[in-house]
Simulated assay, not measured.
Amino acid sequence: METLLIVLHVVVCLFLIGIVLLQHGKGADIGATFGGSSQSLFGSEGPLPLLNKITTAVAVIFMLTSVALAYISSHTGTDSVMSGLTKPEPVQTTQPPAPVQTEPVGPQPAGDTMPIEPAKAPEAKTDAPPAATPAAPEKTQ
């Protein structure tokens, strides 16, 4: 029903535009007034011509369809557009986490063919005194 009313409204609108553009304007008579024509600008027009009656009828139909469409649009569709949406659930992954890399891996220098050895942990200190080193021979004079 609403679609039919919209189509009727658009057709009536286009017809009304065409009829208004076809009518003879009152301002067009002003040139004939000074030329001695029998019609005057402010004189009585007599009975309404057929084109004016059609224009009035089409304007009334246009107003009625406008009011009907406004009434229909205000009384239908109280739901929000967003009411039908559901909240997406978070994605569950079954893959294990990636291993943590302990050593930085970078490009090797161009001339180095030896692989880089990992850093060694510092050795534990003992309470023993350092080994005795042989004393240097004394010089005699």
Rank of each mutant, 00 (worst) to 15 (best):
A68D: 11
I54Y: 10
G106A: 08
T133S: 09
K120D: 10
T133R: 12
I72P: 02
T93M: 06
V60I: 15
E2C: 06
N52T: 10
E138M: 08
S83C: 08
T113Y: 08
V100D: 07
T93D: 05
A28Q: 14
A57P: 05
T86H: 05
P49H: 11
A28W: 14
E89V: 12
V10P: 01
F34R: 01
I6K: 12
L14A: 07
V81T: 11
T55P: 00
F34I: 03
P88R: 11
A132Y: 04
K87H: 07
M63F: 10
P122Y: 00
V105R: 01
S80N: 05
T133C: 02
I61H: 09
A57W: 08
T78Q: 01
K26C: 02
G77N: 05
M114Y: 11
T76F: 00
L22K: 10
F15E: 04
P134L: 12
E138R: 10
Q95W: 05
T56S: 04
M82E: 14
P104L: 13
P49E: 14
L41D: 12
S40D: 05
T93R: 06
I54Q: 11
M1R: 06
P134D: 14
S83N: 10
I17T: 02
V67Y: 14
Q95I: 12
Q101S: 10
A59Y: 08
T113H: 03
H9C: 08
L85C: 06
E123V: 06
E89D: 15
A98F: 05
I116A: 14
A132Q: 06
L14S: 02
K125Y: 09
K139Q: 13
S37T: 06
F62S: 11
P137E: 08
S83Q: 04
P47V: 08
P115S: 06
K125V: 06
K120S: 03
S40G: 09
T76D: 01
H9E: 10
I17Y: 02
T133P: 00
A28Y: 13
T55I: 05
A59S: 15
S74P: 02
G25A: 11
P104K: 14
T93G: 11
F34P: 00
G84R: 04
L50K: 07
P90N: 11
V100K: 04
P130H: 01
P90K: 13
L16I: 00
T55G: 08
Q23L: 15
T94F: 13
L50T: 12
D79I: 01
I61S: 15
E45N: 01
E103A: 03
P90G: 02
M1H: 08
A128S: 07
E123W: 04
V11L: 13
P134R: 07
P96E: 08
A131M: 04
Q92A: 10
F15C: 02
V58E: 01
P97V: 01
S66A: 15
V100M: 11
L21C: 08
T76P: 04
A135T: 03
V12Q: 02
A110T: 09
Y71H: 10
V20E: 09
A121S: 12
L64G: 06
